[in-house]
Amino acid sequence: MFWTNVKRIVRTGFFNFWRNGTVSLASVLTMIVTLLVIGFIIMGSAVLKTSLDELRNKVDINITFIPKAAEEDVLSIKHSLETLPEVARVEYTSKEAVLEQFKERHADDQAILAALDELNQNPFGAALNVKAKDPSQYQSVANFLQGKSALPNTGLTIIDQVNYYQNKTAIDKLTSIITAADKLGLVLALAFIILSVITAFNTIRLTIYISRDEIGVMRLVGASTAYIQGPFIVVGMIYGLMAGILTLVILAPITYWLGHITENFFIGFNVFLYYLHNLPQIFLIIILGGLFIGAISSVLAIRKYLKV
């Protein structure tokens, strides 16, 4: 009996979808708008995330040591930095490497190279490049370097300069921008999703409102709640499925067109390639989202008319 009912409900759902062509078309179109918004939000947050990550990566601090600092002392500071939970990674550049890099940078400037030769010794100290896990954590890294634990046994500081203090304002500003952008992105995404889901819900509610008299008649001939509700849920899910498939089709040319723009604008992020690479996940989110919105809207909208 159960399967007979399921078969009848699904069949009726398909018939209703087909026979109410205009209403179905309108509902599918509205659902497409809803799902497109969700699709754009997925892409948008990916763009935002890549951009913010890129910005985060650009923030670092450089510690330069005095030329006299012994390599083992520098390496021991490197080691203690690495034990800090805030630190993502520390890169060591030996004083020789620093000199090489300086020479390379000034390869065209004979005067500077000549002056270096005159010195007969390496005027540079080794350097450490520190990347924190989050830009807001550079302050504590800087504090650590000021503390005694970073000093070698001699008690004299071998640190020449920590460029955090020069870049502090820029780092702080960037940190607050990144945090704000993260929050704003989330709030906007939620607001758009809620708005578009409400729009889809209202459209489905209207389609059920059109059928309110029929629902009353079904009640009076003794049809059970599930038997009345079932076909409406099936229709809602067909709306969602059709809209989902069409949305995925529509997203392809749109992201293709946007791909070049985002690639130039957002540090090499091509939204079309992102779409193609993440198609299985996007497919699941859009299709399941469509099915879910369609079904839930039908359940909520029909309740009111089932009270007879």
Binding site: M1, T4, N5, R8, F15, N16, R19, N20, D213, E214, G216, V217, M218, L220, V221, G222, A223, S224, Y227
Partner: peptide
């Protein structure tokens, strides 16, 4: 069995389906 002045048939169902619906609803 109910019969109404305004008929109250299900407009999206054929005559056959309107009648069959009552039987389907009864399982």
């Amino acid at each position: 069995g109910m019969v109404f002045q305004d008929f109250r048939l299900l407009p999206d169902k054929t005559v056959y389906e309107n009648i069959a619906f009552t039987m389907e609803a009864s399982g």
